[in-house]
Amino acid sequence: MNAADELSALPAVLTAVFLVGGAAITLIGSLGLLTLRSFYERVHAPTLGTTLGTACIAIASMIYFSALGTRPVLHELLIIVLIITTTPIGLMILVNAALVRDKSESDGAPQRKAKDEHP
C-alpha cells in the first residue's frame, strides 16, 4: 500500500466509496441467490452484481489508477461493456434451458426427478 500514500484526499475518498458500494451491491445480489425461493426468482439476483456492482468497482479502479498515474486510465470501461453485453445472452439461454427442462420433466422422464428435486 505504499503507492497509495501520495494519493490526494478526493480520489481516495471516491475510490473507497465506489469500492465498498460496489462490493456491497454485489454481496446483496449474491445473498439474493441464497435467499430467494425458486429458480426463476434466483436468476434475477446476479444481475445486481453484473450491472451496478461491476460498474461501481470499475469506476473505483478508474479513479484510483487515474489519480495514481496522473493521466486518465479508462480501460476498465471494456469490462463494463463486456459484462453488460454478455450477461443477457447467458441468462437468456439459461432461462430457455430451464423452461425446456421443466417442460420435459412434467411430460415424463420421472426417473431423473428423484435426484434433481432435492430441496
Binding site: 436468476v43 434475477h44 450491472t51 441468462l91 437468456m92 432461462v95
Partner: peptide, 26 residues
Amino acid sequence: LACIITSTPGTLWVDFNEASGILTIH
C-alpha cells in the same frame, strides 16, 4: 432491447417470437 431489459435487475428477456412479434419477459 434485450440488453436493456436484462441489465435492469428484476426483468429478464426470455423469448421473442419472430413470426407473431410477441416478446416474453420474466
